[in-house]
Amino acid sequence: MRENDIKNLDGLISASLRESVSAPQELRHNVMSAIADLDAQTSPQRRAIPRFVRYAPALACVAIVCFIGVTFLRNGGAKSAAPPQYGTSFDYTVSNGADSGGAVPEIGSAGGSATGSLNKDMLAAPPAAAPMPTPSPKPEENYSDTPMYAAAPADDSESPAASAETAAIAAEVIVATDELPDELRDMESVALDDGTYLFENVPHDTVEKLLKIGAVLSSGDLPEGTVSVLWTPGNSVSRR
């Protein structure tokens, strides 16, 4: 390797990395086989699931709705409506059922012996529903829930302080000017292949000045609290 190789790093990288890489033959075969297996597995499995298990979520929903309805009727609905028809599952006596208005329901008539007591307050307070856990996607599955070209997901490489700086500074504004702003004139820059210039580690006060004069910019990420500034030469002014 020669010193010139380093100077011509882009060429060196390109020559070294832009080798033609062909996926192995087995990739296609393996993927298609896996897909065939996947499809073959899911369909019969779905058919093989017992009807009870398959409809369990629906049955659970119906049961919850029924429970809420019964609780509601017992609590307030009974005052103006006919007394609820109790089922066989309530093997309790209501200690002050006379207060509920209307006729005292016949509790336990079909269910056998009464084994406890259930007062009105207990009936009035339905058990608090357990909070449903919200499944959080695994990091590697984020792709499926993240809309493409929508709001970009948070970049976890940025420190909290740096993120705050980004929010303050990088409103994704690019203002192209025909001359390099004075504030950046003495700084080293990297000319990118799309015609923009990248200034790394720009001091915050410089960025503030550039923002004030409207001479910049799109910012990059902020390694260790620093700011990268992209300057696009040209007369046109564009904002995004």
Binding site: M1, L12, Y149, A152, P153, D155, L198, E200, G220, D221
Partner: peptide, 25 residues
């Protein structure tokens, strides 16, 4: 779009990657 980063961030990353690679070499 592929990495979920802003375009400016991508440019910065590529530039820093090149610089780090040069340093490594």
């Amino acid at each position: 779009a592929s990495t979920g980063a802003r375009e400016g961030t991508v440019k910065s990353r590529i530039s820093r990657a090149r610089a780090a690679l040069a340093e490594y070499l």
